[in-house]
Simulated scan of single mutants.
Amino acid sequence: MATFVHLTPAACAAGIRRSGIKARGERRGVYLFPVLASYALTHQWLRELARRPGSRGVVAVQVRLPDGEPVAVGRYGRSFDELTAAEAVRRIRELGDGALGWEVFLPRTIARGEVRQVRAVRQVAGWRYFPGAHGVTPCVCAGCVQPGAYGSRRLRERRPHPLDGPAPASRVLLARLERAEARADTAALRDTLQWYGLRRRGPVERLAPLAGHPDARVRQGLARAVARWSTPGADELLRELAGDAVTDVRQTVAEAVAYRRTEASAALLTALGRDPSPAVRDAAVEGLVACGTPAAEAVLALLADDPDATVRTTVALLTEE
């Protein structure tokens, strides 16, 4: 029998003692780590899990699985290998300290009889953010630093991000746009469009000519910026970009309008779901699921049998009950 540990909020302890560990998440399963001789390595995920929002306190649930139980093992953010439970324990044990960031995924619920022990653990072991993060200059972008997280205010005060704060006034952005166009400065154009993306409204007519810009990255930046706007004409500009000859631009449009709540954007997603490129169809799936219209459901039914395996997998994951 192979022995693993599962770390979970202390509030879940009573339910686990009563009925086991339920499979959760998009993949429907439970994440584990082998019980090794090293306490710190076995409980390496403690600090990372403890910093997430929710109830305070973490408990370790010790479980035993048959040696031949099918599991997946790998480092988070990378592809996993399908192995048996015993092989997974052996592989991670052989890695030694190189097992930081590794995990085992069991694609099923853990029954009550497989739970051997539920115990409290001290949140002093492990890493935060990623293995080896200590001493690395932290990223302070909005995607990495969560407002209200421990130390986030001091971190932003010490290392302000260039995109912090409100976007510049419209007249300032228009002046930057004119200077960038006069110098044919593509980088400055993209930076200005990024600032426009932080606004809720903008000058659609002034930016519309950029839909014909020779650099596809500028057209992608235009799609990301306009998708956030409620300005009249934004949907028409997005429709024009959705017909771009470059696949990356159409894919960006599909990603950008995924949660835009207008009738025109719903129709646009329906059209992008039938795009010749598998990458565009795959990018449109999330928006189609969020739409929920009869037309979107019809396209999703077609994409469920798409010739491309990636598209079929995305549909299966996002429409799973």
Rank of each mutant, 00 (worst) to 15 (best):
residue 230 S to Y: 09
residue 239 R to H: 09
residue 245 A to W: 00
residue 215 D to I: 04
residue 245 A to D: 07
residue 214 P to H: 14
residue 244 D to I: 02
residue 211 A to R: 15
residue 248 D to G: 04
residue 245 A to G: 06
residue 265 S to I: 10
residue 219 R to K: 07
residue 259 Y to E: 07
residue 235 D to H: 13
residue 244 D to T: 00
residue 233 G to N: 10
residue 213 H to V: 08
residue 211 A to H: 12
residue 258 A to D: 01
residue 217 R to A: 10
residue 230 S to P: 06
residue 220 Q to V: 10
residue 261 R to C: 06
residue 254 A to D: 07
residue 237 L to E: 09
residue 261 R to L: 04
residue 255 E to H: 09
residue 262 T to A: 07
residue 205 E to N: 03
residue 211 A to G: 15
residue 218 V to T: 09
residue 221 G to S: 14
residue 243 G to T: 06
residue 215 D to K: 01
residue 221 G to M: 08
residue 254 A to M: 04
residue 216 A to F: 14
residue 240 E to G: 03
residue 207 L to P: 01
residue 264 A to W: 12
residue 225 A to C: 04
residue 203 P to Q: 04
residue 220 Q to H: 08
residue 243 G to M: 06
residue 204 V to P: 09
residue 247 T to G: 01
residue 247 T to M: 04
residue 214 P to T: 11
residue 205 E to A: 08
residue 251 Q to E: 06
residue 247 T to N: 00
residue 202 G to V: 03
residue 217 R to N: 12
residue 233 G to V: 12
residue 251 Q to K: 06
residue 212 G to D: 15
residue 208 A to E: 11
residue 220 Q to S: 14
residue 257 V to C: 09
residue 204 V to E: 12
residue 263 E to R: 11
residue 261 R to Q: 11
residue 234 A to C: 02
residue 215 D to G: 05
residue 217 R to Y: 09
residue 216 A to K: 13
residue 243 G to N: 02
residue 207 L to Q: 03
residue 255 E to W: 10
residue 240 E to S: 01
residue 224 R to L: 12
residue 200 R to T: 08
residue 227 A to S: 08
residue 263 E to H: 12
residue 219 R to V: 02
residue 203 P to E: 06
residue 220 Q to F: 09
residue 212 G to V: 08
residue 240 E to I: 00
residue 234 A to S: 07
residue 207 L to N: 04
residue 251 Q to R: 11
residue 255 E to I: 11
residue 260 R to S: 05
residue 242 A to I: 05
residue 236 E to N: 12
residue 223 A to Q: 05
residue 236 E to A: 15
residue 233 G to P: 12
residue 206 R to C: 12
residue 243 G to C: 02
residue 220 Q to K: 13
residue 250 R to N: 05
residue 210 L to Q: 14
residue 249 V to R: 07
residue 243 G to L: 03
residue 230 S to H: 15
residue 216 A to T: 12
residue 211 A to P: 05
residue 261 R to D: 08
residue 232 P to L: 01
residue 241 L to D: 00
residue 251 Q to C: 02
residue 255 E to D: 10
residue 209 P to T: 08
residue 266 A to T: 11
residue 212 G to M: 11
residue 213 H to D: 14
residue 253 V to H: 01
residue 238 L to W: 07
residue 225 A to I: 07
residue 225 A to F: 10
residue 242 A to N: 02
residue 250 R to H: 02
residue 240 E to P: 00
residue 243 G to H: 04
residue 213 H to F: 14
residue 248 D to Y: 05
residue 256 A to Q: 02
residue 248 D to L: 06
residue 236 E to R: 15
residue 248 D to F: 02
residue 200 R to G: 13
residue 256 A to C: 07
residue 210 L to E: 14
residue 255 E to F: 10
residue 215 D to T: 02
residue 210 L to T: 15
residue 237 L to F: 10
residue 257 V to K: 05
residue 265 S to R: 07
residue 241 L to A: 00
residue 246 V to L: 03
residue 231 T to A: 09
residue 214 P to Y: 11
residue 245 A to H: 06
residue 203 P to Y: 09
residue 235 D to S: 15
residue 235 D to P: 15
residue 215 D to M: 01
residue 226 V to T: 02
residue 236 E to T: 13
residue 230 S to D: 13
residue 208 A to V: 10
residue 241 L to C: 01
residue 235 D to V: 13
residue 200 R to Q: 14
residue 219 R to D: 00
residue 245 A to R: 09
residue 250 R to S: 05
residue 202 G to A: 06
residue 217 R to K: 11
